[in-house]
Amino acid sequence: MKNTKAMRHSGPSAELEAKGLHRLAGERVLLDNISLSVHGGDRIAIVGPTGSGKSLLLRSLAMLDPIDAGEVQWRGESVHGRDIPRFRSQVIYLQQRPALVEGTVEENLRQPYFLRAHRDKHFDRERVSRLLSSLGRGDSFLSQHQRDLSGGESQLTALLRAVQLDPAILLLDEPTAALDSDSTAMVERLVIDWLSEMPSDRATVWVTHDDEQSRRISNAMLQIHDGKLSKDVHERIR
């Protein structure tokens, strides 16, 4: 926790806690003993130069990559093995390049409900319609084929697919890096709307290159450089 002790916590205990994450590639240190915690209500931006380890940190928080040392805890329990799919259904990582399956937008949105981790939920078309309408999109968007979507629309679909599953934390890996300003605004709008449904229970960790964006979407900022989270760089900006 040495890197984040100056960060104030809004909840009684951390929802997501990384302890001493360490990752090597041969001699090179990719993640250097990183500890941080994420609580309900946190909107954290992670900034840093290209190759500094931002994405790797985010992927490690989602436990998508193996680490050489350290652990990830979810609600006070160490996460490993068979618990991981359930954990990832609560802490969803969204990649920079949206990865959709063959089919329409609606088929893509229905797809996660076939997974064991989401079988107790069901696709709620009305809710999705409401979300779309708040973004100025009609229901006809649902019947579009993924091949016909623009980059922004694909990312919007990937984000919709994630938020409809009601995760507690979204880990966003530069989701707007390849998008134009209109699409970026739409993606930000959707994340903010989703957060505002349960503002003190939900959290985001958003990796971005864009300083302006980091101010818009975060209330705390962490800087990473050569795999190290810099001390005392996080600040409450709201």
Binding site: I92, P112, A117
Partner: peptide
């Protein structure tokens, strides 16, 4: 790879 990782990221087991 992107699709496989997107599935895992949403809570799919490795088999799924």
């Amino acid at each position: 790879r992107d699709q496989v990782e997107a599935q895992l990221a949403m809570g799919a087991s490795r088999w799924e």
